[in-house]
Design a protein around this nucleic acid. Structure first.
Lengths: 160, 160
DNA sequence: TGATAAGAGTGGATATTATCAACTCATATG
DNA sequence: CATATGAGTTGATAATATCCACTCTTATCA
C-alpha cells in the first residue's frame, strides 16, 4: 500500500463522508430522527437481534440505543423477549406497527437513491454496484473491528 | 437502475456509514474535534478558500463553521484576508502553526489507513483504489448538489 | 446456600455537535 | 442616498452522543 493509494483512499473517504451526510439528512419526512431510523431499520433487517447487537452493528453507545428502544417500546413499535439462560439478553421484535414504520423508512431510502442516481445509465450503474460490492467485501475481509456487520446481510423484512 | 441495484447501493451505504464512523472517531489524539479537523484540513487542502466555500464542500452550517474559524483564529492557526470588491468574502490562510496542525491531522489520517488496511495485499489494494475512484467520479458526474466538492481535488499541503 | 463475577441493559448528568433566525458588514445597483 | 444581496457573526436552542454508576439476570464456585 503505497502513498498514492493511501491518498486516493482518503480522498474517497472525504468525498463519501459528505455524500452520505447529504443522503442521510434526506431522511427528513419520516417520523424518526436519523439515529432512530437506523436502529429501527437494523431491527427490521435483523429481527431478533439484541440491543447489544444493534450497538455493535451500528457502532452506537448502548445507553443511547437503550433510550431509543424505550421510545420505540412506548410507541408500540417493538417488543422485547428475555432469552432464558442468557444473562439478561433480550431479543427485539418489531410489532406490526413497527414493521410498517420500518417499511416507510425503507421506501424513503429507496426513493432517495432513485432521486439522486436515476440519471445514471444502467451499464454505469452496474459498474457502480460492482465497485461498491468489491469495496465492502474487501473491507469486511480485512476488518479489525470484527464486532460489527458480520453475517446476516440485508435480509429484508420478510420474516412473517 | 433496478431494485437489486438499489438494494446493493443501500447496503453499501449502510456499511460504509459505520466504517467511516469508526475511522473518523479515530481522530482522537489530535488536539481537535472531528468537525474541527475537517475544517482545518479543508483549508489546508484548499488554501485561500472562503468560509462559505468550506460550508459548501463539507456540507456544514455556516454559523457552525464561523465559530470554528473564530476559535482557529484565536489560537493563531489561520488568518483572514478580506477580498476587495467581493461583498465581504474573506480568504482563509493557514499560519505556520496552523499548517503544522494540519500536517499532524494529515499524518494521523494516513496512519489510520495504514493501521486498518495494511493487511491487504497490494493487488487487492490497487483494485480497491480503482473501485473508489470509479465511484467518486461517477457520483461527481451525476451529483445534483453541484455546490460541493468540485475541482481542487486533494491538492496536498505543498503550497509554500 | 451464599458470595462473587460478568454480560446485558437502564438512567442521570453532561458534553458535543448542529441548527435556526436575526443580526452586522461590505459592496453593488439604480 | 435607498435598497438589495452575498458573506459572515452571534444568541438561543435543539439534536446527538458519551460517561458513569447503577440494576437485573445468570453462572460459578467455595
Amino acid at each position: 500500500m503505497d502513498n498514492d493509494m493511501i491518498k486516493r483512499i482518503r480522498q474517497f473517504n472525504r468525498y463519501y463522508t459528505v455524500w452520505l451526510d447529504v443522503m442521510n439528512k434526506g431522511y427528513l419526512g419520516t417520523d424518526f430522527s436519523w439515529p432512530e431510523s437506523r436502529v429501527l431499520f437494523e431491527i427490521y433487517l435483523c429481527q431478533g437481534i439484541s440491543a447489544t447487537g444493534v450497538c455493535g452493528r451500528l457502532n452506537m453507545d448502548k445507553s443511547y440505543v437503550s433510550r431509543i428502544l424505550r421510545k420505540f417500546e412506548r410507541h408500540g413499535l417493538i417488543t422485547r423477549e428475555l432469552v432464558p439462560g442468557s444473562k439478561g439478553l433480550k431479543k427485539l421484535w418489531l410489532t406490526k406497527a413497527g414493521k410498517k414504520e420500518a417499511e416507510n423508512i425503507d421506501m424513503s431510502g429507496t426513493r432517495q437513491i432513485i432521486d439522486k442516481l436515476s440519471a445514471i445509465d444502467s451499464e454505469t450503474c452496474e459498474k457502480l454496484c460492482e465497485a461498491m460490492t468489491f469495496i465492502e467485501n474487501t473491507l469486511r475481509d480485512n476488518d479489525i473491528c470484527q464486532n460489527f456487520l458480520r453475517g446476516n446481510d440485508a435480509k429484508g423484512g420478510d420474516t412473517e
